[in-house]
């Protein structure tokens, strides 16, 4: 029996969804691809066990977050996360706003950026976010608070964008 049976099907079904999260976490297409390939290689290495017992996607998503935070801690390099998008040259209002958001995200700490991606892109609860990031609920709350406050300072023009987001995160 092929020890990797079902792996390719899993990747084909879920890689683009995982790639979207990786892209938001890193802000860079090449790094996102590098990050996801590392994670999928790890998933493949543990495939027999995961396929038998585990929630494969949950494992992959947790590995994605952990690997991302670990890379950023290790490298101490300011990555080109605020790069202009490679397509979409029009400068209408929404494009300008998106650029401002990308640039502001690029200036958050890795943990602040991760908490925003998990809470507001993946719609994770605070509890789920804490589990994925391997930290306490209180840390998620404070990181979310700091991240939103910093976005408001870094990009005042995003005030409309953040209007629906609670100003006070329960602490």
């Amino acid at each position: 029996m092929d020890r990797y049976e079902g792996f390719q099907e899993f990747v084909h079904a879920r890689q683009q969804s995982l790639m979207r999260t990786a892209y938001l976490l890193t802000g860079n297409a090449h790094l996102a691809e590098d990050l996801l390939q590392t994670v999928l290689t790890r998933v493949a290495s543990r495939w027999p066990k995961l396929a038998r017992n585990g929630n494969i996607e949950a494992y992959a998503r947790k590995a994605l977050v952990n690997q991302h935070l670990s890379w950023r801690r290790r490298k101490h390099v300011e990555l080109p996360s605020a790069a202009l998008p490679e397509h979409g040259r029009s400068h209408d209002e929404s494009t300008v706003r998106r650029l401002a958001l990308r640039q502001a995200l690029g200036r958050l700490t890795p943990r602040q950026r991760t908490v925003l991606v998990l809470r507001f892109f993946e719609d994770r609860t605070e509890h789920e976010t804490a589990q994925l990031m391997g930290c306490s609920l209180g840390t998620v709350k404070s990181q979310t608070h700091h991240a939103l406050s910093r976005l408001r300072v870094l990009a005042p023009e995003l005030a409309d964008l953040l209007a629906d987001v609670p100003t006070e995160v329960h602490r």
């Binding site: 890689q15 892209y23 938001l24 996801l36 490679e86 892109f121």
Partner: peptide, 20 residues
């Protein structure tokens, strides 16, 4: 939720990949 919408639009720019 505008922030959520904008994050999804940024994610739309993620490249198509096949890493299997």
């Amino acid at each position: 939720n505008l922030l959520r919408d904008e994050l999804h639009r940024i994610a739309d720019e993620a490249p198509q990949i096949d890493l299997a």
